[in-house]
Nucleic acid binder design. Sequence first.
DNA 1: CGTAGCTTTGAGTGTTATCAACTCTCGTGG
DNA 2: CCACGAGAGTTGATAACACTCAAAGCTACG
Lengths: 252, 252
Amino acid sequence: MRDRVGAVVTIGGIKLACKDCSLRELCLPLGLHEADLTALDRVVQRRRTLKKGETLYRYGDPLRSLYALKGGTVKTTGLMEDGRVQVTGFYMPGELLGVDAINADQHPCTAEALETVEVCDIPFHALEELAQKVPALQHQLFRIMSREIVRDEQMLMMLGRMTAEERLAAALVNFARRQARLGLSDRLLRLAMSRQDLGDYLGLALETVSRLFSRFQEEGLISVHGRQIEILDADRLRGMGSGMAGEVSVSA
Amino acid sequence: MRDRVGAVVTIGGIKLACKDCSLRELCLPLGLHEADLTALDRVVQRRRTLKKGETLYRYGDPLRSLYALKGGTVKTTGLMEDGRVQVTGFYMPGELLGVDAINADQHPCTAEALETVEVCDIPFHALEELAQKVPALQHQLFRIMSREIVRDEQMLMMLGRMTAEERLAAALVNFARRQARLGLSDRLLRLAMSRQDLGDYLGLALETVSRLFSRFQEEGLISVHGRQIEILDADRLRGMGSGMAGEVSVSA
DNA sequence: CGTAGCTTTGAGTGTTATCAACTCTCGTGG
DNA sequence: CCACGAGAGTTGATAACACTCAAAGCTACG
């Protein structure tokens, strides 16, 4: 059962060891040492693929695992009785999903793949046990959860106090930065989400989002081809989106 | 140095042992056993008092401690360059402040006492070390942070997708429930915050908040005497405020 | 190609913000 | 003890930002 030691056996080449993973800088392992990584490998389950529209978990599902996103984009959504939707987050590779389920041992939202997605399941119970033994891992988990809180607080500022224009600008800047951290362009965005999703994220009607894209384009801020967005004037966009006091240092 | 064993020495009667604290059910200790509580006592610092308007920490302050609220109400606020304010949370006795600072080792918001407040400082480094030894404490911290995320996600739903009316109703219901958990009335609210604070929390103008209070009163939902609110029709208020799918089980 | 979903654009409306004046409360000092 | 003043709260009038409804154009996939 626990026959994998050191160099992780890859079953049919599907599973990559954490220490070989291209996302090791961004994902959980940051700050862990060689031995810790090996221990983590033993905990992390198979790498699996979800197709567009499939869910990682649904509202009310019991907490079994956390999920490390390896590739693709995921949205998490909360639903109101009358059908109103709030997207609580978009997740990109290197980010961890599901920590909001720890509180009540069940997921308080639904996580859906916006495109083909690769994830590693991390059984929570095992992760917690390992964190008990590895101080760096415990700390890293605290940090990741804290970062999630900081992100949500910024979203609160956006939804509570920023105009539609400011919200979209801030979101684009944020996406660009996160894409850049993955080694991709910070100018050319390929949005995985629809205008509707974006509206549900920013607290706007999809028509408002569409109009804003058009206006930003007219003003020479960006160039829009459907979901392909090119950022032409990053400075001005940042200026619009960040009336915020300070940039989020979303370290690791 | 480590001369306190079992019964905690109270210096001038200022410090109460965690295990004797009236909030032990709500605060950090939940789920900890006798020995764990004694260990926690050794970590928790003096109990101190803040007067209305004083701050526990300010935006940018380095993370030193987390803070367990023993009495009174605290608001946390984020500030935009042009002066716009977002209240990111109101904290009541038994709740833990400051976890959002773990991410970047500095506080991303300012925490201010809305009335006379009592807090216990919990040096974070020491707490983390203790959590490393006490599994129940580690788990409890994960839960507390997860709960904070769930709360923020609900706030996102409120700010993004609920009307002004729904937001205020939801907030009142939420305050009532939290007050009830402290053993106080769930009908008679004594709000510690101004209409302005409430507006900055709900993403509304203070005038809108005021108008809503008046309207709720006309409709027989509540009775308003300044900051004293009596809930007359809790069911209808809940109905208005919670288009949400499920109640937050904000356990512990 | 045809169809279904996504996106854009337009017209009209409404909720909530803004500006402004007035009232109330409470603490302080004459 | 009462008057005063400052901050907090209420209420009204007006305006604006973003929503809703509607229709047409586009894209992509079968």
